[in-house]
Design a protein around this nucleic acid. Structure first.
Lengths: 145, 145
DNA sequence: TCACAATTGAAAATTGTTTTCAATTATAAA
DNA sequence: TTTATAATTGAAAACAATTTTCAATTGTGA
């Protein structure tokens, strides 16, 4: 089940934030894409329909949405600050195409065993992890040049 | 088995790079720490003994050591560009203490099954992954304030 | 309608990183 | 040894990404 821009609008309000036209515009852009996008990309896409929005607002909106767990931050090998819609509600990870940027979500990450083992071995209190898989998607593989 | 600064010096030479005093100083700093460090931290630590080294040289040296797989790049939740000595030679990951930055290496990451499954499901050609675990180390846990 | 708080955009400031370039250093050839 | 050549360096400038500041605007509840 996916979060639509409208549902997110409600969540925003529930948390005491206003759904301004700017935020709505940013949400629409993120929701419309299946790829992860940098703040700069989100900025220029949003400006296509809302030419008056400022880059600062993009940054502020992304921080807000991220703090509410409404968008995901994607760590790509080149840049650590790309965003996309959080699609599954729960814990999940991304498989990112290195060529076109397409992202496939997956869950069932098998780290629980690993974390248990390491907790025993290291006495660390393990609080989280960062896992991203990289590869080349079928579309990009079939068009070599 | 760990790579010492001296062994790395040899590897550098084998690959056609000179072991300059500056590079040696950077290596010493990285080898002496069990934590990951940002370029800025490495810079100031190196300057304690080599006050004339420039920040540019730090960046260049880090790029070089990284391209030779002599240091690891650590992706922490706050910053994506920290470096530490590559200790195990092979494939491995990091368990990073969120409070003091200490890093424990581990291998035996159980991603092969996951990757096989996803290869079948998504037809992606999976080429790599980014995995870092975060937690609080025993030392930091025992000293609450 | 009024007052207040949240939000915005522009500009400036800050931070992190890379490029440029002339000077220095090391290495190999004569 | 000298000499030529290539690699390396540091300073400064350039560049890019992000954050801060602040006055103006907007929306909301009294």
């Amino acid at each position: 089940m996916r979060l639509t821009a409208n549902k997110i609008a409600g969540i925003l309000r529930e948390n005491g934030y206003k759904l301004t036209p700017q935020r709505h515009a940013v949400l629409k852009v993120i929701a419309a894409s299946s790829d992860h996008m940098t703040p700069e990309t989100i900025y220029s896409k949003t400006r296509e329909e809302n030419p008056d929005i400022g880059l600062v607002t993009i940054y502020r909106t992304l921080d807000l949405l991220n703090s509410l767990n409404l968008v995901c931050r994607v760590h790509a090998p080149d840049g650590c600050r790309s965003y996309m819609m959080r699609r599954p509600v729960g814990h999940h990870h991304h498989l990112v195409c290195s060529q076109c940027g397409k992202v496939v979500d997956f869950d069932g990450c098998t780290l629980a065993d690993l974390e248990n083992r390491l907790t025993k071995e290291t006495k660390f209190d393990i609080t989280g992890h960062l896992l991203e898989l990289y590869g080349v998607c079928p579309d990009c593989r079939h068009v070599p040049e």
